[in-house]
């Protein structure tokens, strides 16, 4: 995935699109936007940095996972098998990108209780329990179910400024590869050797 920082306005559409797609419970964010600020008034620079799982080619999380629940698929997407995860959270601590979320149980957004407060909440709970489980770690999976159907990930689909492009990094002719080449796309923390699959196009 490529995210164009020049286009992003930090509207948090991705954050909520992800929530709506995966029904993540309170406190769990697979996608989010972090706001950075540097400089001194009046020469100050503020940047929105949309974050999600980097689906690294050399994923730290996969390395440290003692259970084998975290797996890298042949297409590069890193997934968590929620039926195999024990919730030790080594991965969440080892991930340099804060992409992993532990959730001890599903709770209702309105009441904070384990009992759903509406039919939508019940639907949400059902979806989440199918997607993940209680007491385990979860994370963005590039909307693997959507991608397999030929759809774009939910955050890419929603983004009002169309700052996100999804595609095949291994194909040098793909739009993402071309964007990275032309706009000098960069990875976050390349020094950790994670070889992240999310590239950022500089804003300035």
């Amino acid at each position: 995935m490529v995210i164009d920082l020049k286009r992003c306005t930090s509207c948090h559409s991705c954050t909520v699109a992800c929530k709506a797609e995966h029904h993540t419970p309170p406190g769990v964010f697979w996608a989010k936007v972090v706001r950075l600020e540097s400089g001194k008034y009046p020469t100050v620079v503020r940047q929105a940095l949309p974050l999600l799982c980097m689906n690294c080619k050399e994923p730290e999380c996969e390395k440290v996972c003692p259970t084998g629940a975290t797996k890298k698929r042949p297409d590069g997407i890193v997934i968590v098998d929620s039926k195999q995860c024990v919730g030790c959270r080594y991965c969440a601590v080892a991930c340099p990108y804060g992409a992993r979320n532990f959730s001890s149980d599903w709770t209702d957004y309105f009441t904070g209780e384990k009992k759903p407060s509406s039919e939508f909440a019940a639907h949400s709970k059902k979806k989440w329990m199918k997607e993940s489980d209680k007491g385990v770690v979860s994370k963005c999976n590039f909307c693997v179910d959507r991608v397999e159907k030929g759809l774009k990930p939910a955050c890419v689909n929603a983004c009002p400024t169309e700052a996100r492009t999804f595609g095949d990094l291994d194909d040098p002719e793909s739009e993402v590869s071309q964007l990275i080449k032309k706009r000098r796309g960069m990875q976050l923390h390349p020094e950790y050797g994670t070889d992240a699959s999310v590239y950022y196009l500089p804003a300035r």
Binding site: K63, P66, T67, G68, C85, V86, G87, F102, K134, G135
Partner: peptide, 25 residues
């Protein structure tokens, strides 16, 4: 008591090749 899914604790031992938790346990 700490584990999110204690009934699956046995899985902790499965990846000593890369995981220090597996090794330690």
């Amino acid at each position: 008591l700490y584990l999110g899914q204690p009934s699956r604790f046995y899985r902790l031992f499965l990846k000593p090749r890369t995981s220090w938790i597996s090794r330690g346990l």
